[in-house]
Design a protein around this nucleic acid. Structure first.
Lengths: 274, 274
DNA sequence: AATTAAATTTCGCCT
DNA sequence: AGGCGAAGTTTAATT
């Protein structure tokens, strides 16, 4: 009872709009928070003793036990047990409709989706935690390799560009995603490299052309310009050729592998210490 | 600050061994709970602003933002964003070692696995919730179909047994997993069916033989005995033949589909109401 | 321990 | 919207 009071107090005082936490709430209290979270598309977490029924692409039944229910802002539903990477029951985001009911001290949260037709119902008869909050998350997620990683991979293994390529210097560009590497190829020609993580577009080619132009005014050597990227936009290929530039395919993933091998040594060292 | 006091109080008073909840803790407080949870193999949930670095089978980087970290009793690690069914970062259970560090008001939780060699590090600079608890969960999870479901499917579609089969009556058995169905085949012979969800063993055959024996003393009709199951144990097939009984393959999954079609109508009705 | 196949796969990309 | 292919796939079953 003490706890419950504290909870209510906490809700009233602390970030009333942002965060709600109830410990050991009764069904009625929990129901209120759950409804609110679902309507407002907040992240919702309910921890407690529950049973689950799923009907849809398959049919399943989970007997009573303590689990964690997570309902995300996009309507994704996850029921997690004490162990196992995968949720025991779930529903991906889609055209999901939620129903919340409280009867006989049981809180039922039901999610129904039209396509594919499926429904998952979670019933709690004991609740130890209800949490709801908007999650402020604008952070970017980069897999495989960031542009910087591609850059680093090129420095680590210049032959990723071509056999005999040697790096002279490099320059990080914070501007809309470009990284330059300067070097010489096996025949002694100067090489200017522009790295792009995604498909290289017109802007990348023009940018490189501008650089090349500037470099040529300062040297009598032959100068090559190479766009390094996982792919190049359709019409841009022609422009590239017209400007006397080149394109080199480089998979960010391959760069990641190159870097990984270097870091794997660090992992090995960690275990050796242990 | 009020909240923090309340939290500590809550921990001291309410189920000290079972459940711990901190709202807006400082790094030191959170660190204590996190370490404790990891050592005691409790379910751990941390909600807060964090960034994540993963190195292993690939390489990834997640910039700062509010997410949910879940570490399970078996060492599974999940980092969930506001949307999406899948975790943005994760690590399945295995030979995982955890490291917890708190420096400069940043709490870092790092999980390292040997095979495959990979590591995921989550760093929090703002924590809104720390939750830890042992989850008591012995509930069974049954996918596809329970024995009762197979039973019901047979009643719904007797032709699942064979063409022309008709159900006369049925009897639920609570005993170690048997269900009986009585009926007549297309030639008028009496049929006794025993359903099993898993591989039918010696016990099932003997049980059925006993029933058949009893039934034959009460009728002059021909009586067939059929074991219905997804498979039959190796040596048992011979015994079955010796006793003049039969085996009918029936996949629980197929039963589930039969039942699903019936229930799909209910789903459709739900949407029509809406 | 390594390999194969299935999954309520999910997810992105392309037509 | 449907189809195809990849995934840090995971997981269970099988060799």
């Amino acid at each position: 009872m003490l706890i419950r009071l504290l909870n209510l107090l906490a809700n009233a005082v602390d970030k009333p709009e942002l965060l709600t936490v109830l410990v050991d709430p009764n069904v009625g209290e929990a129901e209120t928070i759950v409804r609110n979270a679902l309507v407002q598309r907040k992240m919702l977490i309910v921890v407690g003793r529950c049973w689950v029924r799923y009907v849809g692409r398959a049919t399943s039944k989970l007997e009573k036990g303590e689990r964690i229910l997570m309902v995300k802002a996009d309507g994704s539903v996850l029921v997690h047990r004490a162990t196992g990477y995968e949720p025991v029951n779930w529903m991906p985001s889609g055209d999901t409709v939620f129903q919340v009911g409280a009867k006989d001290d049981v809180l039922e949260i039901r999610a129904v989706r039209r396509k594919p037709a499926e429904s998952v119902a979670v019933s709690f008869d004991m609740i130890s935690l209800v949490f709801s909050s908007k999650l402020a998350d604008a952070g970017e997620f980069s897999l495989h390799a960031s542009e910087e990683d591609m850059h680093n991979a090129l420095l680590l293994k210049p032959q990723l560009l071509e056999e005999g390529f040697k790096v002279i210097s490099y320059e990080k560009k914070v501007e809309p995603g470009f990284v330059d590497v300067y070097g010489i190829d096996k025949t002694g020609r100067l090489v200017v490299v522009e790295v792009k993580r995604k498909t290289a577009g017109k802007d990348a080619v023009l940018q490189l052309a501008k650089y090349i132009e500037a470099v040529r005014t300062r040297t009598d050597r032959q100068v090559r310009g190479i766009i390094v990227a996982p792919s190049i936009a359709k019409g841009v290929q022609r422009m590239l050729v017209a400007l006397g530039l080149e394109f080199k395919y480089l998979d960010p993933k391959k760069c990641a592998e190159t870097l990984r091998k270097a870091k794997t040594k660090k992992l090995a060292e960690f275990f050796d210490e242990e």
